[in-house]
Design a protein around this nucleic acid. Structure first.
Lengths: 262, 262
DNA sequence: AAACGTATGTCCAACTATTGAAACAATAGC
DNA sequence: GCTATTGTTTCAATAGTTGGACATACGTTT
């Protein structure tokens, strides 16, 4: 849970303002100034001004009656643009639907953000109408299927940098807890072209994951099918590997076409 | 088209950085530094540093091979949070589906952002699977149905401020082109509880719109049904008013429950 | 009703980051 | 190989930021 803390003190005013924005957005309800203050690393005056700036800029909104802060509409506007242009979600949607229909298990589409896994799209096992709002969570890279699938295919320099950012917290007995061990695992993942989460993040939860690679070999994202050992043993899940790889490739192709429509 | 220009020069570094972010996001493809420079009000060095800061912060991303800028994943992450918590879209979804089924015309859900209309959700007349990505556009407030519906119910002070921000560009012969005329129109809208767009924005396009008001009377958003005069005369569309108002009320109720789930 | 506490907003001199013209480096084009 | 274009760095002048201390608003207690 405490895996994906932000880098700490950001340099410059812009960095601070964005951290303050993160702080407000990380809360899952409107928050008052006094609630934010102890959560922030800044003195009162500074936080006050930061929030005021963000409000003036439309990135935050204050409920007039309660004085609580929520994300602003300018952010919502940027949201659409960012989601449409920088996430694989809109491209992958039809492929996820198809895959979902075939496997009937929970599916995740993720992208790598500074060593962490950002889930950009999800299909639940049951519900046929999954929504944007279900995605958006961030998870650890070192102990999830998609995380390992993506990390494995990063160029050496970037992979090294990404491994530095891992928390290596032992969530379960299976969790990989050092960069060295992880490198060995990643080599295997690279070789097989598929990654497994063998209850490394949550007990009883397993998954198969494939990387989504651009034609030039760049990591675009990751795709995974998750289930519980109670429902399906890992060996069974492993049989989905070819289908997963195939879907990942189709998404990659569509992504390549997509980049320059003009 | 040139209706919704941002305020111009924003004060402070944060303001500039956010404007730069807007600038990149406004482009509908990855953009190079040299393309952005003429679009920005800043000298080369400044823009360069702003972009670099945003990249370092994860709000922007540079394609390694082309050096083009796109929205970054940190923004995508904030996006989810903002969309889920500050837009009516997730709450309104089921109601829009229901309304869409009943009327079979294009439906818009919008919110007011500094006098402008931000479309946060949309249902097309034909396609049964409308997506998040179709929303996110910004339109003028003074000559759209949702715009007038929302403006009409703003408290005096805010309404005045909002009217100052209107461009009053005469898109068609029907467009209202002054704050005075608009105030008269808004009074009528307030009285009737419904607003019409009588080809004020685009020739041949008409719509009925209802405001979405909180229990305390605050403007939360607007809801509209749009069609073309070729398909349906305005009088016919007007018969949908009760249904629209009803849907708007249901959304408002759900929104009220939503605010504090804890 | 006055005194208190808490939450929020404001001020300003010391301090730092930001600015942008101009010089420099790296590419792409010819 | 030379020139034009695009991208990157530098540095003194400038402008914005900092945060402790002070002020105000509001609800609560004595």
């Amino acid at each position: 849970m405490d895996d994906h803390l932000r880098t700490g003190r950001s340099e410059g005013t812009v960095g601070k303002a964005l951290d303050a924005l993160d702080l407000v957005c990380a809360q899952d309800r409107p928050v008052r100034f006094s609630e934010l203050l102890p959560l922030s690393p800044w003195p009162k005056g500074t936080l006050y001004r930061l929030l005021q700036t963000l409000v003036k800029q439309g990135m935050l909104h204050v409920e007039p009656e309660t004085g609580s802060y929520t994300p602003g509409l300018r952010l919502v506007q940027l949201a659409h643009s960012a989601w449409r242009k920088s996430s694989l979600a809109p491209i992958a949607r039809p492929h996820l639907d198809a895959l979902s229909g075939k496997v009937g298990e929970t599916i995740h589409l993720a992208q790598l953000d500074r060593g962490q896994v950002l889930y950009v799209e999800k299909r639940n096992a049951r519900h046929p109408l999954p929504m944007f709002s279900e995605a958006g969570k961030v998870g650890p890279g070192y102990c999830t299927g998609v995380g390992k699938a993506m990390l494995a295919h990063l160029p050496d320099r970037e992979r090294c940098a990404a491994l530095q950012l891992q928390a290596f917290h032992p969530h379960t007995a299976q969790t990989i807890t050092s960069a060295e061990e992880l490198e060995i695992e990643l080599a295997k993942v690279r070789e097989e072209g598929i990654a497994f989460d063998r209850e490394e993040h949550e007990p009883g939860i397993v998954c198969v994951a494939a990387p989504i690679l651009s034609p030039t070999g760049r990591v675009l994202g990751g795709l995974s099918v998750t289930t519980s050992t109670a429902r399906r043993p890992l060996e069974d899940l492993a049989t989905l590997a070819p289908l997963l790889r195939e879907t990942a490739e189709m998404i990659a192709e569509d992504a390549a076409d997509w980049q320059f429509p003009g």
